[in-house]
């Protein structure tokens, strides 16, 4: 086992556990962002080719877009809850 893959795997397990342990929905998003970094790194470490790098960057940008949409939705929900009160 390579030390690079071992480090990334260890960080992935720690962050995955912390996603389950966190109660706040907004504070889960930084952990999910960290998990996406680990996923993109593992994709290119297993597929060492230009297509693997392209897969990693497409995965990372699309996951960031979905994080962006989720965070924006949480912000809008807070505004709606304030006006309902």
């Amino acid at each position: 086992m390579d030390i690079v893959i071992l480090t990334i795997g260890t960080i992935m397990v720690i962050v995955g556990l912390r996603i389950f342990l966190t109660r706040s929905r907004a504070l889960k998003l930084p952990y999910v962002c960290c998990l996406n970094f680990c996923m993109a790194a593992l994709i290119v470490l297993y597929i060492k080719s230009p297509m693997g790098a392209l897969t990693a960057v497409v995965y990372f940008i699309s996951s960031t877009i979905s994080s962006n949409a989720i965070a924006h939705t949480i912000g809008e929900m807070k505004k709606i809850e304030k006006t309902m009160k």
Binding site: I8, V15, C34, F37
Partner: peptide
């Protein structure tokens, strides 16, 4: 490849 793992460690110290 050490920079790939190094960036994962760096983002872990900030976000995780």
């Amino acid at each position: 490849q050490y920079f790939i793992a190094g960036m994962v460690i760096a983002i872990f110290t900030i976000q995780g």
